[in-house]
Design a protein around this nucleic acid. Structure first.
Lengths: 231, 231
DNA sequence: CGTTAATTTGAGACCATTCAATTTCGGTGG
DNA sequence: CCACCGAAATTGAATGGTCTCAAATTAACG
């Protein structure tokens, strides 16, 4: 509700309807599967605690991460309509998610126009982020790519009310950052060292701090328009 | 209507409502801009004739193509809700598009549930394709990448009723294929030669023919689930 | 039929990968 | 509190896929 309120006007009745949604809280350990590719989706997952990411596995065993998700976000809202999951969703760390039956989502969207629009906009913003990721892995070099990803994560965490100014809890491994940027873990490591040496970031297991926003932004060729945080 | 009917049930009244949409036909020359990044969207473009693609330009002047679009497809339906375009849309060749006022789209979606759902599903399938493209440019080598893109285009053209069995009109330059796969035009050229030498495809300016579907599919690590052509 | 765009070719350079080894870190049990 | 363990991070050196730059050839078009 807090997320959607930023771009959609929800009435008290809308909020009540959201709070009345049936759900089951499920807990996932590190690397647990919230959704599996090819499976029919019977419920949608709303992240309560912990981080998650979407990914696809390739035949050679490599993995491409397609997006990261932070608490408060739906990780697979599109499955309410598409029915069959076209990718996997995995937890980064210990995670709690509210599993909401697909039908309940559909009914809510049917009954309440404002919520329906908010959901649609939500999936459209996801979509915009995927587009930027295509650009990121397609045309940027490793330093720019990683800086861009870090800018995005920081900005989304900030907008979510997480983190403290320029410091965030970010429990991602370098291997996960590598799979998100289309690089190897080894090269991600070297690139992070460059960013650290340049005084742009502080990053180690769990804690992430931006030391120079302007330089990181510049390094990452970052323009937040695509996040649609206003509108 | 033909596209949407594949995944949504539209009543005769729905179809009438679609046909009653106000629109203005606009013609674009090669590389004409249908939509510009940063601009407020006042209308959505439905392709009537010709091909188009979405792209973003980077500060170094390079370009990443994010998707291709064929006649009958909306190229920027998301702008009806997001308001500000986060990427450019360009025509491949001489193109005609029906420009439909944003408000008319919104009103139609509000008034007709089946159309609204069809629109939402349309944007969700777009989204799924973007995800696959992240994987494609992120983790596949050049040969696999190009083979995958060609499979996608063939399959979408086929489903659209274009093309004749395994032969299609595909007026893309190698530079455009390169910008879509995150490669250089030179390397795209060499890779296409490989695919031709292997007897998988026939491809030259304007005409594209698949000589061996199974091998091209295999070469491209292609699984069409993400196109959601059924569901 | 001239002119420009698109494709093709070659050679060298470079960014990122691969593979393997080492070090650091986080957690766990004694 | 410390020894131990596996996971994660780091380092080095060699390899390789793709890029860059430049030139030549072919195709498209008015």
């Amino acid at each position: 509700m807090r997320r959607w309120s930023k771009h959609s006007r929800l009435s008290p009745e809308d909020c009540d309807a959201i709070l009345d949604l049936p759900y089951a809280v499920r807990t996932f350990g590190k690397d647990g599967y919230l959704v599996r590719e090819g499976q029919e989706a019977t419920e949608c997952a709303l992240l309560l605690h912990g981080f998650a990411f979407r990914q696809k596995l390739l035949r050679d065993g490599s993995r491409q991460i397609i997006s990261f998700h932070i608490p408060g976000e739906f990780v697979d809202l599109q499955n309410a309509l598409l029915g069959i999951a076209d990718h996997n969703v995995q937890s980064v760390n210990r995670t709690e998610a509210a599993m909401i039956p697909r039908n309940a989502i559909i009914d809510l969207a049917t009954a309440r126009p404002a919520i329906r629009t908010a959901m649609w906009v939500d999936t459209l913003i996801d979509s915009s982020i995927f587009r930027e990721w295509v650009v990121n892995v397609g045309r940027r070099d490793s330093r720019t790519r990683i800086a861009h990803l870090l800018c995005e994560l920081a900005m989304r965490l900030e907008a979510n009310g997480d983190g403290d100014g320029d410091a965030f809890d970010l429990p991602l491994t370098q291997e996960q950052l590598a799979d998100a940027t289309g690089l190897t873990a080894v090269h991600t490591n070297r690139t992070l060292q460059t960013l650290r040496r340049e005084g742009l970031i502080h990053l180690n297991s769990g804690s992430f701090k931006i030391l120079d926003w302007n330089k990181l932004r510049e390094a990452g060729d970052f323009d937040e328009l695509y996040l649609h945080q206003r509108i």
